[in-house]
Nucleic acid binder design. Structure first.
Lengths: 192, 192
DNA sequence: CGTCTATTTGAATGTACTCAAAAGCGGTGG
DNA sequence: CCACCGCTTTTGAGTACATTCAAATAGACG
């Protein structure tokens, strides 16, 4: 149950068994059914979430009720509304499960406690956020310079597994194009 | 010379004089003339940069030679290619000064040393990256859901000072639109 | 099997882009 | 101080890519 998260953390910093056991004692395990919410708009995001299995998404509804997917998270990813988490303000996002999923949660106060007890975790999250920051920069650059077709091809390259399990209107939402456009792009690409 | 950076760091974590003095002993001061480069494509980004005064930008050239500006940094901002910094790979970005500027630099090895000597800095950068991550998410959402005009208005709201000092084709590049389009948008807005 | 949702297709529209040229602005040197 | 040069911004005309709206088809699930 904790194998994956240990490997995830040890990508950036090595832990003793004692440290790791302390860490897991702060975690909360949760099983999510398909479509179940982990966070709803207006609620305060008080925990970080690590995905053990399954797939979640974080999205936002605009005034017209359109969904914009900001992030997917499959096994071995972290997800959460960092703005709400940091500031304690209500979230503008929804996080829900796209399929039956298992997640590990850590509450903000426990995490603060952990940072103090085991500073390595402060290091881990510093590096993790630094990496996430880089990933978002890349996505912004894509938005600045690429056509819809290029963005889709990039997405296929970067997340070949995701393409499998997602309905394609959700891919469209993530890429910032309409489902109709994505359908046409796919048709075009199929003819090559 | 170090007043601003101290205030910047103390937004997230309080420092003793001793800690701060140790920190400043690791910094390198640099004055940049207008158009002078801090980082060039192909070079390795081995330092973080804090802007004391002036204004820098980070951008990338695509195959067609078009500039895409990924970030501006005025006084009190940090800038750097985190990908290159983390991995040691050559950077794909340029960073240069838009006007005469003064910056404080810290080399990667000094920063690592600092993290060990004064873990508060690990905390500081963890929070700083977490905040930056939030800012980029917001920008991605803008890219997904807003028209060029809305993005421009948002930009004006968020960075009213920047609008003043930047030539408008650079604002266009940051927003991911052509200079011609921005010119038309401004004309339209002026008529309201 | 029937219902609900997702995907595809078509036609018309719109937003932003490209290319080209003119106008504006700022700095430099005669 | 003025004239010129280079760069930025504006304007125009035509175009392309993606959107909207509408309808048909296909798929999934109870």
């Amino acid at each position: 149950m904790f194998t994956l998260i240990r490997k995830n953390i040890e990508k950036h910093t090595r832990l003793s068994n004692e440290e790791f056991n302390y860490f897991t004692s702060l975690l909360q395990f949760k099983r999510l059914r398909k479509k179940q919410f982990l966070l709803e708009e207006g609620a305060i995001c008080s925990r970080e979430c690590f995905v053990n299995s399954g797939c979640l998404r974080m999205y936002r509804l605009n005034e017209k009720g359109q969904e914009h997917i900001i992030q997917f998270a499959t096994a071995d990813w972290w997800i959460g509304d960092q703005y709400s988490f940091l500031t304690g303000e209500p979230s503008a996002y929804f996080i829900d499960a796209l399929e039956e999923s298992e997640v590990l949660l850590i509450e903000k106060d426990k995490l603060e406690q952990l940072y103090i007890q085991v500073p390595k975790f402060e290091r881990f999250f510093r590096i993790a956020f630094q990496n996430s920051y880089v990933a978002l920069q890349r996505r912004i650059l894509a938005g600045l310079s690429q056509t819809a077709e290029e963005k889709y091809l990039d997405f296929l390259n970067r997340y070949p597994d995701l393409e499998q399990k997602l309905p394609q209107h959700q891919v469209a939402s993530y890429l910032g194009i309409t489902p109709e456009s994505l359908s046409r792009i796919r048709k075009q690409l199929a003819g090559k």
